[in-house]
Amino acid sequence: MTLSQTARPDRAAPVYPAAVLWDMDGTLVDTEPYWIEAEHELVAAHGGVWNDEFAHQLVGNALEVSAQLIIDKSGIELSVPEVIDALLLRVIAQVEKRIPWRPGARELLGELGELGVPSLLVTMSWRSLADTVVRQLPEGAFHALVTGDEVSHGKPHPEPYLAAARLVGAEPGACIAIEDSPAGVRSATAAGVPTIAIPHVVPVPRIEGAVHIDTLAGVTAADLTTIVSSVLPSR
């Protein structure tokens, strides 16, 4: 697939990406505070030491990596699977009560669906949490999901974004990724996907292949290719 155009009689036809590849935590939904709260609760329950500086180091990473960092930094005596399960239970419980959508995300996702531009979720959260979020959206909002428990290498490795592009039959350079974390931006750009970085909980350094914006509020589907125009691969 390549970039597509939809004709308009009164203006130049907008160019849409072959697919939009969405991060979830911090990009689609503001769940990073849920994760940080869960980390504090878990570590405190097991007599360890935790703080927000440690928590911010985990943002965007594969859950296995984050769990090991929690064990190493906090001193709690749990296994990686035990940490992951405990965190997921806490975060899913919060999401089931309330999903805090990020500004402009649902509106853009809905417009892309109306235009027939596929959206794929590319998250290091596991399928159980991703499904909980996606159930709150209209059926078919996402063409497919790539989750942290279904890849061999998590972000910042390029595998998750390469897998997403394959699922929709698109070249990575014809897609656009939307991310909020350093690990996520590095994953997408390493896969060759032009990336929109929207820093949220933690700063995102300038990374080749990514363009920074402040918010998705007011961003339309027709804006996406224009936003990343300076980092699109030459054809």
Rank of each mutant, 00 (worst) to 15 (best):
M1G: 08
T2V: 10
S4I: 04
Q5A: 05
A7I: 05
R8W: 12
D10W: 13
R11Y: 14
R11N: 14
A12M: 12
A13M: 10
A19W: 03
V20M: 08
M24C: 14
V29I: 04
E32K: 11
Y34R: 09
E37T: 02
A38E: 06
E39A: 04
E41Q: 07
L42I: 11
V43C: 02
A45C: 10
G47S: 02
G47K: 00
N51P: 05
D52S: 11
D52R: 10
N61P: 05
A62I: 06
L63R: 08
E64F: 09
E64P: 10
A67H: 06
L69V: 14
I71L: 01
I71G: 03
D72W: 06
K73S: 15
G75H: 12
E77K: 02
L78W: 13
P81R: 05
D85K: 07
L87Q: 12
L87N: 09
L89N: 12
I92D: 03
A93I: 11
Q94V: 00
K97C: 00
P100R: 15
W101H: 01
R102W: 07
L109P: 01
G113T: 01
L115G: 00
L120S: 02
R127V: 02
L129F: 08
P138L: 08
P138N: 10
F142K: 10
H143Q: 06
A144S: 10
V146N: 06
E150R: 15
S152E: 09
G154P: 03
K155Q: 06
P158S: 11
P158D: 04
R166E: 04
E171R: 13
A174S: 15
A177Q: 06
E179T: 12
S181N: 14
A183H: 03
A183C: 05
T195D: 01
I196W: 00
I198L: 03
V201F: 05
R206L: 07
R206Q: 12
E208C: 12
G209R: 02
I213G: 07
A217C: 04
A222Q: 10
L224W: 03
L224C: 08
L224R: 00
T226F: 07
T226C: 10
I227K: 01
S230A: 12
V231Q: 02
L232C: 00
